[in-house]
Every structure is written in structure tokens, then in C-alpha cells.
């Protein structure tokens, strides 16, 4: 967890909106789930080849992380903590995520066909995106998070993931014609670039600590 939140959360109640904004920015930038924890890498590497699909997958991730963070927060507070079965959260969270994605897919397909055709295959794909489960699991380790804090944390993490994949898609579309050594093409150069971007994001946390 970033030093920002550790410092921000216990402060003498700076007002909920301000706190939520800090959580949002921290989750999206300083604590970017993809660039600081390297979660959700496989779809990131595979999909970032094209801008259009990157945006599609990114938006789907934002939506699902936000909703599942809220749902899993409720499960955490009202079920697992009360019954003392926190150790089951890994299983419960992933089941909730899987069922939620299925449900959303059906609803979107029925009522928003254009969105369904745009996101299409991405919705079921992100059921197994580890960033989604990661968000839920990190969320419950944060001190003093209530329902809104958790939801915004989910939203921010999703936005961070979206930002990272869109950045990468932009870079990859520009280096498509470049002469990259054979052995580095594809995943290789993408990982190298990801590392460099990650360093830049470390800069964000450096900027905000004081």
C-alpha cells in the first residue's frame, strides 16, 4: 500500500469527498494495480496490441472492478467477518466475480446490444483477470475503508488499469514499424516498456509523499 493512503486515511476527517478523491487518485496512479503490482498482465500483454480493443477491455475492467469491489465489501462486512470465516474470502470473491460477470453479460446483451457487441468477448475474459480479484483482496486489507471508500478504490484501480493498457496500446502502435531485435518482439519489448512506465509511476508516489 502506498504511503499516501497510510498517511491520508487516519487524518482528522478531511471530509468524505476529499478522502474519496485521494483514494481514487492513489489507486489509479501511485498504487496502480498493473504498474506497481503487475497484476492482470496476461490480458494486458495480449490485448494492448490495438487501441480499440484496449479501450474496450479497459472499460470492462473499470466497470467490473468497481461493482465487484462494492459487492465483495458487503460480503466481507456482513458475512465473512461476522461469521469469522475470512479465510474463505478467496473462494467467495472469485465466485461472486464470476457470477456477476455472467449476469452483467446477460443484462448488457439484452438491453444494450451495441455495448455488448463492442465489449463482446472481453466481459467473460476478465472473469479470470487477476487484477479483479486482486482489487477485492487489497481492499479488505485497507484500514478504515467503508462502503464508499471500497467502491471508489475499485473504481480507481480499474481506471489505473485502463490508463496503463491505453498507454501501452499507444506506445505499441507507435513502435509497430520500428526495427526491434527479433527476440524482443511481442511480449518481450512490451514487458520492457511496462517496466519503464512503472518507474515513471514510482515518481508519482515520490511526488506525493511529503
Amino acid at each position: 500500500m502506498s504511503p499516501v493512503l497510510a498517511a491520508a486515511a487516519p487524518q482528522a476527517n478531511p471530509g468524505l469527498p476529499a478522502q474519496l478523491l485521494v483514494i481514487l487518485l492513489a489507486a489509479a496512479l501511485t498504487d496502480n494495480i498493473l504498474l506497481t503490482r503487475f497484476l492482470g498482465m496476461c490480458s494486458f500483454l495480449a490485448i494492448s496490441r490495438q487501441m480499440k480493443t484496449s479501450v474496450g477491455l479497459g472499460v470492462a475492467v473499470v466497470f467490473v472492478t468497481t461493482c465487484t469491489a462494492a459487492l465483495n465489501y458487503l460480503i466481507h462486512v456482513f458475512i465473512t467477518v461476522r461469521l469469522g470465516i475470512e479465510y474463505l474470502e478467496y473462494i467467495l470473491f472469485i465466485v461472486v466475480i464470476a457470477a456477476f460477470v455472467q449476469l452483467v453479460e446477460m443484462i448488457v446483451e439484452r438491453f444494450l446490444p451495441p455495448l455488448y457487441f463492442a465489449l463482446g468477448i472481453f466481459l467473460p475474459l476478465i472473469t479470470v483477470n487477476c487484477a479483479i480479484l486482486g482489487v477485492s483482496l487489497f481492499m479488505i486489507t485497507k484500514e478504515g475503508y467503508g462502503f464508499w471508500q471500497s467502491t471508489v478504490f475499485g473504481l480507481g484501480s480499474g481506471l489505473g488499469w485502463l490508463l496503463a493498457i491505453v498507454l501501452m496500446a499507444g506506445i505499441r502502435s507507435r513502435i509497430r514499424e520500428d526495427k526491434i531485435p527479433e527476440g524482443l518482439r511481442g511480449a518481450g519489448i512490451t514487458l520492457v516498456i511496462t517496466g519503464i512506465i512503472a518507474l515513471a509511476f514510482v515518481g508519482f508516489s515520490g511526488m506525493l509523499t511529503f
Binding site: I79, L83, I85, V95, A99, L103
Partner: peptide, 21 residues
């Protein structure tokens, strides 16, 4: 309690999906 909760939640979700379908 643990097994019951797990089964209960999975059951509710499955029923929800069947209904939605």
C-alpha cells in the same frame, strides 16, 4: 458454518443466474 455459507452463497448466485437466463 463455513461450508454452509459457501454453499449458500454459491446456491443463491446459481439461482440468480438461472432466473436471469
Amino acid at each position: 458454518v463455513a461450508v454452509g455459507t459457501l454453499c449458500g452463497i454459491c446456491g443463491v448466485l446459481a439461482a440468480l443466474l438461472v432466473l436471469a437466463d
